[in-house]
Nucleic acid binder design. Structure first.
Length: 457
DNA sequence: TCTGGGGTCCTTCAGCTC
DNA sequence: TCTGGAGCTGAAGGACCC
């Protein structure tokens, strides 16, 4: 299936392309007429100047457009062109992804679902399907790795690529970017936007500016002109709190930050953030594209449909979350050394408590025992909780991790029992074997005694 | 308006060892 | 023997990102 063969409401006719070029002109209206920043959109030809201007731009940032929603629309062509959001539809759900049609109503990700529905009563709400998104993501990442081994995924739907080594084989960065956009569309039937620049930070800004379904090249000598008119919130690492702090200093644009003494920024934001923002404001970003080495933590958390004050319900939830974390640790081949309990109260204040174990674990029995001790030590009485979470940090590869042997350790313990459960789950499906306590709400907490060792053969 | 879930990184503080 | 500082680690909280 080729890019042009896919039938979608948003796809292109020749008239569309002509219209898109006028859209490009509007997008670029805020920039000087001849600023050397080249953009292309929806398969249109590269502009004349990007051939020479992308020579110093080996970094690509590629971001799927409305990724989760786009994945859903592949199998729901009837919804193309309509406002669609993906997210939990419960009383406390938020928007995970929104099509551009939904965004026109002011809907954006992380918005409470109730508000999204008020803004657009006709919006179509779809539940998230993470297995599907992971599958599409794997396909997209495989395309990236065909181009270069230097791929740094940031999430399921975006990645940095360093294409320095691919130029001789595939051409200039902007040509490579267009080739990737075409392959993603042809092979996965979703669109993406690409920023091409000399640094990761500028490439990321450029891809955001190119959205949806566009390409933007920012040559190194145009970085300051591109960057300084932007609002401070465009800087990577500036969220609500930092933006407030910068506004208290009277700084509204990136250019304002650039022209502020570093000492002033450090006093307001701390050493690390202050010096980091000062460098970013001049487009200086020495970070190279890093192929990830592995996870640093694995966690699970759950917001209750309504606030809970029953300790027994909370313990059951902690057990369920410990199971989830342990299963994921084992599946990914990790053990964690530090166990973290997270508690969010009804008023949204959040606390964490952690304990570092003598030896790292991937056993839910140990994770739950630790997290339960941390929970009991809080002495919450009947405080109303909104959320609880469990996380394992300080991860090591399970194969490399030293095992603490105990004098009274049975030949086959909890770890072996849980691995057997993993095998049963793989064979019979999720939930086929689980602690009794998660099936029945009786007094048994599921960890009341030693596991039954497998019968010797 | 009323705030999910999965993460990473940074800062601060306390305790411990040398 | 006591004291202070440096350096490290663990714990906790917060900000931020997608």
């Amino acid at each position: 299936m080729s890019r042009s063969q896919i039938t979608r409401g948003a796809r292109l006719t020749q008239a569309d392309i002509a219209a898109d070029r006028s859209v490009d002109a509007r997008l670029d209206a805020g920039r000087p007429a001849n600023d050397g920043i080249a953009s292309a959109r929806k398969g249109s030809a590269r502009s004349d100047n990007d051939q020479r201007d992308d020579d110093d731009c080996p970094i690509l940032h590629i971001d799927m457009d409305a990724f989760f929603a786009s994945c859903e629309l592949r199998s729901r062509p009837d919804l193309v062109g309509k406002p669609v959001i993906v997210g939990g539809d419960g009383s406390r759900g938020v928007v995970t992804a929104a099509t551009y049609e939904a965004r026109r109503f002011g809907i954006h990700s992380a918005m409470p679902m109730s508000r999204a529905k008020r803004l657009c009563p006709q919006v179509v709400v779809l539940p998230p399907n993470f297995a599907l998104y992971s599958e599409v993501s794997a396909g997209v990442m495989a395309i990236f790795r065909d181009v270069t081994p230097l791929v740094e995924p940031l999430s399921l739907d975006e990645a940095f690529l360093d294409v320095s080594g691919a130029r001789r084989r595939l051409g200039p960065p902007a040509v490579i970017a267009e080739m990737i956009r075409s392959r993603v569309y042809d092979e996965q039937a979703i669109t993406c936007s690409v920023g091409v620049a000399s640094t990761k930070f500028i490439a990321k800004l450029a891809s955001t500016r190119a959205k949806p379904d566009g390409l933007l090249v920012v040559p190194a000598d145009r970085v300051v002109a591109f960057l300084h008119p932007l609002a401070v919130g465009a800087l990577w690492g500036v969220g609500d709190k930092t933006e407030e702090a910068l506004q208290r200093l009277g700084l509204a644009t990136v250019g304002d930050v650039a022209n502020t003494p570093v000492d002033t920024l450090v006093r307001a934001l701390g050493q690390s953030s202050g010096t980091h923002l000062a460098a970013l404001a001049w487009g200086r970003d020495p970070r190279s594209v890093q192929v990830p080495e592995g996870e640093k933590s694995v966690g699970a958390e759950e917001t209750f449909p309504r606030d809970i004050d029953d300790p027994e319900v909370i313990r059951r939830e902690l057990l369920r979350l410990s199971e989830r974390v342990a299963v994921r640790l084992r599946r990914q081949g990790y053990v964690g050394r530090t166990v973290v309990l997270k508690v969010r109260f009804a008023d949204f204040t959040t606390i964490t408590r952690s304990r570092t174990l003598r030896s790292a674990t991937d056993v839910s029995h140990e994770i739950y025992a630790t997290v339960r001790e941390l929970y009991e030590a809080l002495g919450l009485q009947r405080a109303r909780l909104r959320l609880v979470g469990v996380r394992a940090e300080g991860l090591l590869a399970a194969a490399d991790a030293p095992r603490q042997l105990l004098l009274d350790e049975p030949v086959a313990g909890w770890r072996e029992a849980e691995q057997a459960v993993d095998r049963a789950t793989a064979r019979f499906g999720r939930g086929s074997v689980q602690p009794a306590r998660l099936i029945d709400s009786g007094v048994d907490d599921g960890f009341g005694g030693a596991p039954v060792a497998p019968r010797p053969r």
